[in-house]
Write a protein that binds this DNA or RNA. Structure first.
Lengths: 200, 200, 200, 200
DNA sequence: TCCTAAGCGAGACGGTACGTCTTGTCTTCCA
DNA sequence: TGGAAGACAAGACGTACCGTCTCGCTTAGGA
């Protein structure tokens, strides 16, 4: 069979599975979903499911990965390119992702909320780490003696961001993205002491 | 039967179960452990297990959490009480937990490492949140207008700490606790900008 | 737990499974029955099923085996004991089994009919072989030179009997057992030539 | 494409499938063979397989049965035609099949041996039944009163033959076909009593 | 001292999800 | 246009855990 035709069929099945998973998450919660549930919704046999991924987690990861990595890496390039003032433009992904999360609120809340939240966000975490790592490589000219290793800072920033994002989503994403973004970047760049004594 | 004797028996069984779980974690990883495994190691019948807790997670929570909460909250009080200078003493739990993690490296790495890491650390996260929340209640006199909500800061700090802790453990906890603690608190209090431009 | 109590519980479950299988055979035919069907009828979990037998065939065999071997070996002893005239009493099992089959017609037709018939009858075949072998050991004084080996005769007789029994059951067991028994033993003892030329 | 060419192609594919099945039987046993196995060996797509037959059993039947039926019915006709003395020539298929089985020992043992033996031999049984039925129609002039129905005798003879054949094959087909044939026909025509008291 | 109620081990059980396997259908392309 | 390739839906399989349960055994107070 022609490769392209097959590829298209496969891609369509894969997409159906992704969509089935996403549509189920709000109904039952990620943890409670079974492979059979997904197959039923997607009108797909169990064997087909396992022909495409090794399990529920794998399916989720593949979907999220492709989605996010495409989104972020594309727009991140612009941000990095347009970067003049290190302070103003640093952590460029932040606003981008807050906005994206608000636009796809259902999906994000489903992924991040409740028990399996942290697991689900593993992929986002990795992607963000890549971005922050790249950004720091530009921003921080050299690895100063006595300073924390660059990877340490990466983990610090990404960990903080993920926690804040999750919390914001769990509360309904009520403050507008721009404001959350401002708060996060202020804490990240200036530290909590500055925040505590002066306010914004 | 006398209540006290019974209580003692019960406590002993409970402790045996806790110990069985902890001893299994390094061997198979938390996720892979089954209730039967625990019962086998503890020489306990399934029914007894379920007489004491509702499942694996419950057992873990009761054990680890009580343990940690006792450890941290006790010493945290001293820290809070002795707190004169907000800068020097803030985030008092940090060094304490780094040290504790290094002392029980096997256990922590088992909990934090690999796949289910974030899930397992959920309890620690909650405990830390409580601590930071309490600390901020003292440190930050009022909720300044324009500043981030206090809970936002809590999530930020705890998220960053957990990420850094996990990363440190995954790397083998090589830098000494005191140094990691210093790096973390520097980033947290003064922000990454200070870190980037000046060094320590 | 006391052995007897457990044994009783186990025996009851086993019996329930046997009964479920037997009750299903007339409805769907042996081949079409799934393990899940049996479990549903028996109100038993899959795991319990597999704790008692290795599969559908095994369940069937265990049931049939116990049942028949008990029936035949008990009554066969009497027959052998009372045996005076080799001609009149030979192949003593024949009438016994024809009658038993008619009394439990549903069961036998279910087992013997259709596709899996021969498979199902494997156990009966073995049991009968044992009986005939024992009978020949008494009847045939010595292994005459030029004659067929005794085991050959055993296979011959049992094969013929099984075929005749199956055929009779498939036709509804209409001729009375006594008559079928007479026909079979006549053919077996005197051969088909005698049958063809003289009649009974 | 010319019809004949197509027909030839079809026939060739069919033959390839047959051959694939036969070659697999000794390796895995009939029951364990899957359609995919056959397709792999035959270098044929699944769709092609199902274009030629409805399943594994169908393929076996078409192959083995045609083969045997051709072999037996051709030579059987001669036997029936040349039949003068009912005793000497009766059960003419017997020697023929014993010889054929010995010549294709591997195949027959695969079919007859072990578990699924009787199932696989179902086809042979049917063919033999047809032959014996035909022979009896000639030999036994009329349905004598009191005698067993003709079909009863057919089942009796075929059952006995199949059992003896299987037993012989399972033992390695050691006695030469002629001898087994003699023993079988002696038992069949004269009965076991004659065998027991006089020998050959 | 015996009695009695609880904790406990043992493990059978009903259930549920898993990942694997085979079947038979269907679609697309190639020769 | 027949056949190869193989994706697919369907669904049975045997396994692994789960959480519930029933059963006796032990054991340490209160009678």
């Amino acid at each position: 069979m022609a490769e392209r035709t097959i590829d298209r069929r496969i891609a369509r099945t894969r997409a159906t599975l992704q969509h089935a998973l996403i549509s189920l998450i709000p109904k039952k919660g990620y943890e409670a979903i079974t492979v059979e549930d997904i197959c039923d919704v997607a009108n797909v046999g169990r064997s087909t499911f396992y022909a495409h991924c090794t399990g529920k987690d794998d399916l989720k990861r593949r979907g999220l990965d492709e989605h996010l990595r495409a989104l972020l890496s594309a727009r991140q390039k612009e941000a990095l390119a347009a970067q003049g003032d290190g302070r103003a433009r640093s952590l460029a992904f932040s606003l981008l992702l807050f906005e994206h999360a608000r636009d796809h609120l259902e999906l994000y809340r489903a992924l991040a909320g409740g028990r399996g939240g942290e697991v689900s966000l593993g992929s986002i975490r990795e992607i963000l780490s890549d971005l922050v790592r790249a950004e720091l490589a530009v921003t921080a000219a050299k690895n100063l003696p006595g300073a924390a290793p660059r990877e340490f800072v990466v983990q610090y920033v990404v960990g903080a961001y993920m926690a804040v994002l999750t919390w914001w989503l769990d509360r309904g994403a009520k403050p507008p993205p721009a404001e959350v973004d401002r708060m996060f970047r202020r804490l990240a760049t200036d530290g909590i002491l500055a925040h505590l004594v002066e306010g914004s």
